[in-house]
Amino acid sequence: MAETDAGASAAGDARRIANEARERVRFEEEALDFADQVYRVARRLVSTREEAEELVQDTYARAFRSWRSFTPGTNMRAWLLRILTNLNVDRGRKIQRSPDLQPLEEGDYYLANKLAAAEGEQALEQDQVVERLSQSGVVDALAELPHDFRDVVVLVDIGDFSYADAAQILDVPIGTVMSRLHRGRRILKQKLAEENL
């Protein structure tokens, strides 16, 4: 009798272990599917390619260790990015207060107005008008944004996260995401105008 119980419980353990191994492999494969997307965001949060690679590796090392804390069916890409942004702060990036705001940034039409002034109003209708801005200039302008603004702009405009996901990733209220995003984009356009026009 006792032997049968022991046999049944050993079989139960084996099943549990096999199930857990399967779940784990599924988790790891899904996480790896997001690697390129995670890297693209990481790359714009740090200055160099090497730092970005290291940050992504640290992120995956931690994710693989703590896979049980991921709730299946929830947004894994956001979960990975939350680990990544936390690690990025831990790695010595000072948490920067939003700088007390330069008197006023320009409005949302500022860059378009500058382009129109330089190239003529009709130029705004052309698809190529944006190519007046160099691609490396765009990268530099993003890199120059204050961290708080850059995190949000990168998550939403490069990483394609919703406001709600960005709020969860950065652990700030959604209203904060929206105001940083709007201001960050305006500052970005101002920089692009200053650097290119």
Binding site: D36, Y39, R40, R43, R44, V130, V138, V139, V154, I158
Partner: peptide
């Protein structure tokens, strides 16, 4: 679109 394209760098 241009910002997204310009700032997106593939994983090495």
């Amino acid at each position: 679109r241009y910002i997204r394209i310009s700032a997106s760098e593939r994983m090495p």
